[in-house]
Write a protein that binds this DNA or RNA. Structure first.
Lengths: 321, 321
DNA sequence: CAAAGTCATCGTTTATTTCAATCAAAACAT
DNA sequence: ATGTTTTGATTGAAATAAACGATGACTTTG
């Protein structure tokens, strides 16, 4: 039987690949640089192959095989962790650390309500948060640097298991006095002639908003070079008359338009929405936990979205939720 | 960061689960029984959980959590091995040990030709063979006890990556002087009134033959309690006038009907066939090797199946290959 | 050219793993 | 019942592997 690589050595390998620096990698692994160096050499000797290209000056350069081994090492470490995680999950359901990734168009609006709710429902859960774009979060999920994602579909979740938790409708946000502000509901066709403001590239909300308008993601370069970096910025831009936009009901419910005088109108016809949902690695040892958390999340989303009427009810005739 | 279980301990765990006996498991792991016992206790202590139900007399009984951990341990070990395997595969393409599983309705007819061909094409390959039913082979593939399967689709390959290598036509095998023996081609409908002999349950060929006849797998219990355990037996039964059957062209090509006087006829209309193919675990480190081997296999199958005419050409008018 | 930075190497210490021998309990046969 | 066998757990010595700190060789940078 073949000799297996030690988890330690694989951890050295993966950490080195992530930091591309022996010293820093050693620090992260909480060992000395010599230990990490020796561990990597031992790994190369045991596998009888070259992982690093040592002819390449002082930068850490991986051979093609080295990169493949890094990927496989990552997978192996994830599988190893899932053994101990499964044991821990059985010992203490809904407890322990949980690394949750959230996209920027959900986080600021849902977390203020969600976090206290989760704390009271699952007091032993220790939530670590990271806010980033869908693509980055999915990468981190697959690299086992996050356990659970809260994001908006449709999007590319790269093979993750998912659970939908809420439907989040889109509203047209108009500056006060806009020519469309008098309408009860705005047909999609009317948007074509408007200057539609969007988030910068990388935000899934951008693609979803474009899809709602019947456009492809690549269709619209930001003609004037102004794409917003957050929904708050976007709201300010609309309030200043630079154009109109689509806002998720969730953000409105959280009061993002409060005090701006913005007019909110539903799109005419079939509702346009995004689906909020959880995503995790297939076979994740704590998927039962994640689903229970998802059920709780369904409640919270409902509460938050119903609360929306306090903010938008007066000016928005029909509200897709 | 969580403490990871050692690969050693996981190997003890998986081996114990497979042998359900400390002593034998220790022997397989090439350690003493005390080492294996201590390793398992250490694992339970590290994970702070019960893996074995020690109240259950002298038999090895796993707790539900224990069974889950075994499964995850298997996965983790496979992932670990894939690291060293990837290195080995890069160092020596098409070399080293390869555990190949073959179904009984392919093995005896293809391997005599295939093995020498592979030996000359890939002299450094060390082939270990196992013949078993599809379901058992797939289980062993997933448990990382086999690397590559040679089987016949359609069948349930349970998530494996596959590569078709040949189309293997079905022929109607009739006893000499059978009332249908005069026909050039036999319509499927004619089979309904015949006593159709089949392999015993578990052979995919049985299900595939039934499907060709438009029947479901469960439709036909072996009315008379006689199902054959091998194609050779089946041929003898047909030769003795107990009924008729369908034979794969591959078996005919290998001469399974030689000297029996059996009459072979194609089915009328669209050809009925099974597809021979390879299957391996997704992300298997040597999948490039497997595909190269598959390409070679395509050649061998073609040769063998063309050779069929030497055996059946004279009596079989049109031959689906 | 000097200085800093980076990775590899060496000898020592520490921690872990394994073995052989032995023990206690359960199952089986008489 | 009662000895016998089988099974898994325990123990202390020996072997093995991993970690550290200091140092060396080599680049890159100012």
């Amino acid at each position: 039987m073949t000799l297996l690589p030690s988890p330690q050595q694989l951890r050295y390998l993966v950490t080195l690949a992530e930091s591309r620096h022996f010293g820093r990698a050693a620090q992260i692994c909480a060992v000395t640089q010599s230990t990490l160096s020796a561990g990597l050499l031992a790994l190369e000797r045991q596998l009888d192959c070259h992982i690093l290209d040592r002819a390449a000056g002082r930068h850490v350069v991986f051979t093609p095989l080295g990169l493949e081994l890094v990927e496989r090492a990552r997978t192996a470490l994830t599988a190893l962790e899932s053994v101990s995680e499964a044991a821990r999950a059985a010992r203490e359901p809904m407890g322990g650390p949980l690394r949750l990734g959230v996209i920027p168009t959900i986080g600021p609006f849902l977390l203020p309500t969600l976090m206290p709710a989760l704390r009271s429902a699952f007091p032993r859960l220790r939530l670590y948060l990271r806010e980033d774009t869908t693509a980055n979060l999915v990468d981190r999920l697959n690299a086992n640097r996050l356990d659970l994602l809260l994001l908006a579909t449709p999007c590319d979740c790269g093979g993750a298991d998912t659970m939908p938790v809420a439907r989040d409708g889109f509203l047209v946000a108009l500056p006060p006095g806009h020519r469309l502000a008098g309408e009860d509901a705005i047909p999609v066709a009317a948007l074509a002639t408007e200057r539609l403001l969007l988030l910068e590239d990388g935000h899934c909300l951008r693609d979803q908003a474009l899809a709602v308008c019947g456009l492809l993601a690549g269709d619209r370069g930001d003609q004037d070079g102004f794409a917003a970096t957050s929904l708050h910025t976007l709201v300010q831009m609309v309030a200043n008359g630079l154009g109109i936009t689509l806002l998720p009901a969730l953000a409105v419910a959280a009061g993002i338009t409060d005090g701006t005088g913005l007019v909110l109108r539903p799109l005419a016809g079939a509702g346009a929405w995004r689906t909020l949902g959880l995503a995790w690695r297939p076979n994740a040892p704590r998927s039962a936990d994640y689903q229970a958390l998802g059920s709780r999340l369904v409640e919270t989303c409902r509460e938050v979205l119903e609360n929306q009427r306090a903010h938008a009810g007066a000016i928005c005739v029909s509200l897709p939720v």
